[in-house]
Amino acid sequence: MKEVFKFIEVKKQEFAKLPFCEFLQDKSIDPRQRLAWAPCLAPFVMNIWEVNKYFLREEPTSDPIQKIINKHTYEDDHHYVWYLEDMEKLAFDYSSKFSDSLRFLWGKETQRTRQICQKIAAYSFQAEPILKFAIIEVIEATGNVVLSLTTEVSRELEISTKHNYRYFGEHHLAVETGHTTGTDDIEILIENIELPEATRKKAFWLVEKVFEAFADGLNEFYLYAKSHPIEPPLHDINLAQNHQSITAQKDESLQALSQDKHLGYYLVEAGLLTPEQVEVALSQQKRTGIHFNEVITSNNWINHQTVEYIIEKVIMPEQEIIMAS
């Protein structure tokens, strides 16, 4: 597996030299314009959690590599919440007719981006765990490259807007280490796995193909950003009016954070519970006095680890940001 990791690193360096990456680093361009491609990312962001759940994850399993993959898919499952927040903060949350939204999401401008998840799903379907691991390593590598650059753009924006951009900024980058495991000891252990020749060739092929899919997506982003000027540019935005809007949103969010429905909201958004299950759980909580968390886990709708992860990694950071702002 060591050779596969080396190949991924070589491809990562090539990936970082794409015109899109140079575009993100061009400080002569308004920072918001450098993120003008963000709407095109929607098909990937909103689909990757399903790829995680239905193609990369496999439960139950006794395979140690698959267990690592499963853990990763849960940790990587809810980033779309940050994306939706940032789309509002960037003023990209446009109103449009339903038909226009469909034309955009399934049109030529997002074709390559849609194909990223489609190809990952196809490559992962019934693949052995070590090959899935190689695929995820490429996803992590590409994410690390792009987020390292968007974080710098976000820092520029934060100076003017006073917003914290969780998806495009440091918050997301902090969890995208560039590796599936996030720990050196496990990475070394997997690196030393000897692959059969057929598996090694397949891994190299998959690495090439997944990098190619992401490169096509970035080229699509680049063309979109170059052909869609942002109006008005950042320096013309009425920041006072924007601040007033954010203050109102903060007050509403603080009120929501005090309610037990807050956890249920995130679990529904993540596709882990249905709205009906949340209503049933709240009813049981009211009737029995048992905490909401215990109700949903005792009903075997979700496990304790997932609930703890949502609280620790999603809800608590959001609460801290709101309280600090």
Rank of each mutant, 00 (worst) to 15 (best):
residue 96 S to F: 14
residue 67 K to I: 13
residue 78 H to P: 01
residue 62 S to R: 12
residue 67 K to A: 14
residue 61 T to P: 04
residue 128 E to V: 10
residue 118 Q to Y: 11
residue 124 S to I: 05
residue 130 I to H: 01
residue 72 H to D: 05
residue 108 K to P: 00
residue 74 Y to E: 14
residue 127 A to G: 01
residue 125 F to W: 07
residue 129 P to S: 00
residue 123 Y to M: 03
residue 65 I to L: 09
residue 126 Q to V: 10
residue 117 C to D: 14
residue 91 A to D: 11
residue 117 C to P: 00
residue 125 F to S: 12
residue 76 D to A: 09
residue 124 S to N: 09
residue 75 E to R: 13
residue 72 H to S: 02
residue 75 E to T: 07
residue 75 E to G: 05
residue 129 P to H: 01
residue 73 T to Y: 05
residue 131 L to R: 12
residue 75 E to L: 10
residue 129 P to R: 04
residue 116 I to G: 00
residue 96 S to I: 11
residue 86 D to S: 02
residue 129 P to K: 02
residue 126 Q to L: 11
residue 82 W to H: 09
residue 70 N to L: 03
residue 84 L to F: 05
residue 79 H to W: 13
residue 77 D to R: 13
residue 128 E to W: 06
residue 87 M to L: 12
residue 77 D to E: 12
residue 80 Y to V: 11
residue 129 P to I: 01
residue 113 T to Y: 02
residue 126 Q to T: 12
residue 104 F to Y: 08
residue 121 A to P: 04
residue 134 A to G: 10
residue 130 I to Q: 00
residue 105 L to C: 04
residue 97 K to I: 04
residue 113 T to V: 15
residue 80 Y to G: 04
residue 74 Y to A: 06
residue 97 K to W: 06
residue 94 Y to W: 07
residue 126 Q to E: 10
residue 121 A to Q: 07
residue 79 H to K: 06
residue 83 Y to E: 02
residue 66 Q to M: 12
residue 114 R to I: 05
residue 101 S to L: 12
residue 63 D to C: 08
residue 71 K to Y: 04
residue 83 Y to R: 08
residue 106 W to N: 11
residue 79 H to Q: 13
residue 132 K to H: 08
residue 134 A to L: 05
residue 120 I to A: 13
residue 85 E to H: 13
residue 127 A to I: 02
residue 62 S to T: 08
residue 87 M to W: 00
residue 68 I to Q: 03
residue 98 F to M: 09
residue 83 Y to Q: 04
residue 85 E to G: 02
residue 102 L to V: 13
residue 89 K to N: 11
residue 111 Q to P: 00
residue 111 Q to Y: 15
residue 93 D to E: 05
residue 88 E to Q: 11
residue 74 Y to D: 15
residue 62 S to P: 01
residue 91 A to R: 14
residue 106 W to P: 00
residue 128 E to D: 08
residue 116 I to H: 03
residue 122 A to I: 07
residue 124 S to A: 15
residue 130 I to V: 15
residue 72 H to W: 12
residue 104 F to G: 01
residue 93 D to R: 08
residue 62 S to F: 04
residue 131 L to T: 03
residue 68 I to D: 01
residue 86 D to H: 04
residue 124 S to Q: 03
residue 92 F to Q: 11
residue 108 K to L: 11
residue 133 F to E: 02
residue 103 R to V: 10
residue 131 L to Q: 06
residue 80 Y to P: 01
residue 111 Q to L: 15
residue 76 D to G: 02
residue 60 P to E: 12
residue 133 F to T: 03
